[in-house]
């Protein structure tokens, strides 16, 4: 690997990292898991003047459920931590479904959820999960912390709204009111391939009645697509075949795929439709079994 010349700093405190980013004036890049950044450096698609390696910062590896039930994922929490956290399956089934589908085991050992969301690759899995669950990014800069909903955080392909001197320190997933349900399905040509299409669904239900529904789509547009509007078809009633069909139609309509070597646009749209149907049908079956 022969990247362009770059400086390297490994701060020991968050303030120090923010200071380095400030001095970098936008030419400094944060290195966390490095699973996207390092290949981009290798291919010289990215040539930052400075890498600010945050791997030695204390207190960012957390994967914590707060007393109110919300989940906080630190900037250095690896995908593999999420994959192994069996306790997430109940309160955060969408996360539990997505974690083993992220890239491949090697990437999961090193890559981070927060880094993946910051990277804002339209084919990244976590942004879709985060949007479906209404999660927020907590960013810290010289003037303090702010909270940005992930739906507003991603501003385009490979673009986010962070200022150059801000660090995304964690992502917070709110607790479900009632019972959490949902899932994540992805079609890929091979493990570790970018998604042909992916669907994240996050539901909250009270008994058989859906009280909140979020939905987002991976790999079928220039950025992660928030299909929560389509998911509104599900709110306020049971998961009937009719409601499921309307949500699936809405999601397929919200998708903006392009034909490429992974499949035609029509096919990707069809996969979105199929996956929404499958996730919701499975939830409906679970509800029926529980009842």
């Amino acid at each position: 690997m022969y990247p362009s010349r770059f400086g390297y700093e490994s701060p020991r405190a968050l303030d120090e990292a923010i200071e380095l980013l400030s001095r970098g004036q936008g030419e400094a890049k944060i290195l966390a898991g490095g699973q996207s950044l390092i290949p981009m450096l290798k291919l010289r698609f990215a040539s930052p003047e400075m890498l600010v390696d945050i791997n030695n910062l204390p207190g960012l590896s957390h994967l914590t459920v707060d007393p109110d039930g919300s989940l906080r994922v630190g900037a250095l929490c690896r995908h593999a931590q999420l994959e192994r956290a069996a306790a997430l399956a109940g309160p955060f089934p969408t996360i539990a479904a997505a974690a083993p589908l992220v890239a491949d085991p090697i990437v999961r050992n090193r890559g981070t959820l927060v880094g993946s969301i910051c990277h804002a690759d339209p084919q990244g899995d976590w942004a879709a999960v985060a949007i479906a669950l209404g999660a927020s990014v907590v960013a810290q800069g010289p003037s303090g912390r702010r909270r940005i909903p992930v739906a507003d955080f991603v501003s385009g392909p490979f673009q986010n709204v962070l200022a150059y001197d801000e660090v995304a320190v964690e992502v917070v997933f709110p607790a479900a009111a009632g019972t959490a349900a949902g899932g994540y399905l992805k079609l890929e040509r091979r493990v570790g391939d970018f998604a042909t299409a992916g669907v994240a669904v996050g539901l909250e239900r009270s008994g058989a009645v859906v009280t909140r529904a979020g939905m987002a789509l991976t790999g079928v547009g220039g950025a992660t697509i928030d299909a929560s509007e389509a998911a509104q078809a599900l709110v306020g009633g049971e998961l009937t075949a009719d409601r499921i069909a309307r949500a699936a139609d809405g999601a397929a309509a919200a998708a903006k795929p392009r034909g490429d070597h992974r499949g035609s646009a029509a096919y990707k749209r069809h996969i979105v439709h199929t996956f929404v149907t499958r996730i919701l049908t499975r939830v409906a079956d679970d509800v029926e079994r529980a009842a």
Binding site: P257, R258, G259, D260, H261, S264, A265, A266
Partner: peptide, 8 residues
Amino acid sequence: HPPVRQDD
């Protein structure tokens, strides 16, 4: 053929 369909 054609191998990449940019039909849409």
